[in-house]
Simulated assay, not measured.
Amino acid sequence: MLSSRAIRVWTWLHKWTSLICTLFMLLLCLTGLPLIFHHEIGHLLGDEIEAPELPAAMDKQRVSLDVMARAANAQHPQMVIQYAGENEEDPRLWWFTLGPTPEPTENYKSVAVDARTGQVVREYRVGEGFMDLMFRLHVDMFAGLPGKLFLGLMGLLLLIALVSGVVLYAPFMRKLDFGAVRKDRSTRVKWLDLHNLLGIVTLVWCFVVGATGMINTWAELLVQYWQYDKVSALLAPYKDQPVLTAAERGPLQATLDTAMKHGDHRKVSFVAFPGTSFSSPHHNTFFLKGTTPLTSKLLQPLLIDAKTAELTAAPELPWYLTGLLVSQPLHFGDYGGMPMKIIWALLDIATIVVLGSGLYLWLRKPQGARKGAKGTKTAPAGAADALDDAKDPETAAA
């Protein structure tokens, strides 16, 4: 049984972590819902790019990576190719990201090229449309890295709110049958019971999605640390060398062939070209993926010398990057097909109800429960007035 002091501490934690993060969690749940079905919605909106139909004899052929790169670069000859990779939904297409310089920038273009013919199919609508709006709001609220880290902090507050909510409500819920909603009580009590029920049902999911979302906000920092801690030592011989110009580089296809030779039957996830944040000034860095639902999210980097097409290094990803890569599909539920997406969507909707009902219960908390009785020490208000719950559920708050 919790002591009065422990209840006050847990109550304070639950109240303030819940109040601070609720509106941001509602934003993330609302924007995350369409992102679960981003491919399906993209098809409906006409944003998804599909490979044109060709005769069966041509469907298996592939042109060289150099041909595809030249076609993409011809669309924006004033830009340089930063990244390229196979389309996850359709391997007949490759995408190429181009920017003014190799360094990351908001001003970039993305072009889809048919791997069978080497012809440009269409440009992606970068920064346009409904799904891009949802994605940017969900990832960083249009605030870049500071926005990501801020949302990561909100995710941490959510995890604290979940743990403290379980600690405070567990004793009270033992007094009722699981799933009981007291329909004969006031509207507020019925919402309290529904809030508790949905909170318990979605608890594990909320914790998993909240934790993986928080980890994802650290992606840029984790990659930078990996480059500083591990990759920099491997690239010491190339330190301070200028970025290889296009004329100085050898054939792209030769570097792809080297990657495939050492890739242990893996597929290309993406390629980072010299000077970009995922590579070095002297290498084409291939990130290869497995062919199963799980291994397709685990990447193996191969640093291929862009001039000689020789393998320089094949570093193993450290545990923190492996954890990051595993957390990304788990966050959106996109590794188990449509059934998993539907389950994720239903749990997302239930979480929206939990967050909304928690806010409603706080706003509708009786004035006396907020301020405490006259002449007594004011009790902390919030979702966890556990002592009041034990005495009279009518005074409980979300």
Results as ranks from 00 to 15, higher is better:
380 P>Y: 05
223 V>F: 05
128 E>N: 05
357 S>V: 03
99 G>H: 08
77 P>I: 11
352 I>K: 06
366 P>E: 03
398 A>K: 07
223 V>S: 05
22 T>N: 06
349 I>H: 10
278 F>V: 00
56 A>F: 11
39 H>G: 04
325 L>D: 07
189 V>C: 02
155 G>I: 05
178 F>V: 13
319 W>H: 01
61 Q>D: 09
155 G>H: 12
238 Y>P: 00
101 T>I: 09
367 Q>T: 07
141 M>C: 10
363 L>G: 01
336 G>T: 13
155 G>T: 09
279 S>D: 10
215 I>K: 00
133 L>A: 13
316 E>M: 01
54 L>A: 10
70 R>K: 13
167 V>F: 15
60 K>E: 11
391 K>S: 04
91 P>D: 13
358 G>P: 07
93 L>D: 12
138 H>I: 06
53 E>I: 10
153 L>G: 15
117 T>S: 12
32 G>W: 09
242 P>K: 12
45 L>H: 08
58 M>R: 15
87 N>E: 13
381 A>K: 12
387 L>N: 08
270 F>Y: 14
117 T>Y: 13
221 L>Q: 12
137 L>Y: 14
84 A>N: 05
224 Q>L: 07
168 L>G: 10
356 G>S: 14
100 P>E: 14
351 T>F: 07
50 E>C: 01
170 A>H: 14
308 T>P: 11
357 S>L: 10
163 V>C: 08
341 K>A: 06
387 L>F: 01
232 S>P: 00
232 S>T: 09
373 A>K: 15
364 R>M: 12
49 I>W: 04
215 I>Y: 04
305 D>Y: 11
221 L>G: 05
222 L>I: 03
294 L>T: 08
375 G>N: 05
254 A>W: 12
236 A>H: 11
332 F>M: 06
184 D>I: 06
116 R>V: 11
49 I>S: 02
359 L>G: 10
160 I>H: 06
260 M>T: 06
392 D>R: 14
361 L>Y: 04
163 V>T: 13
46 G>E: 03
232 S>C: 04
157 L>M: 08
63 V>W: 14
353 V>R: 02
33 L>W: 11
231 V>P: 09
228 Y>F: 15
159 L>I: 15
166 V>N: 02
396 A>H: 07
7 I>W: 07
36 I>D: 04
192 L>F: 15
273 F>E: 03
36 I>P: 05
264 D>C: 04
317 L>F: 10
332 F>E: 04
88 E>I: 09
79 M>D: 08
234 L>Q: 01
231 V>K: 07
34 P>L: 07
27 L>V: 15
97 T>F: 12
121 V>F: 06
159 L>H: 11
367 Q>R: 13
161 A>W: 09
180 A>R: 13
95 W>M: 04
106 E>K: 11
365 K>G: 00
193 D>N: 12
306 A>V: 04
154 M>N: 13
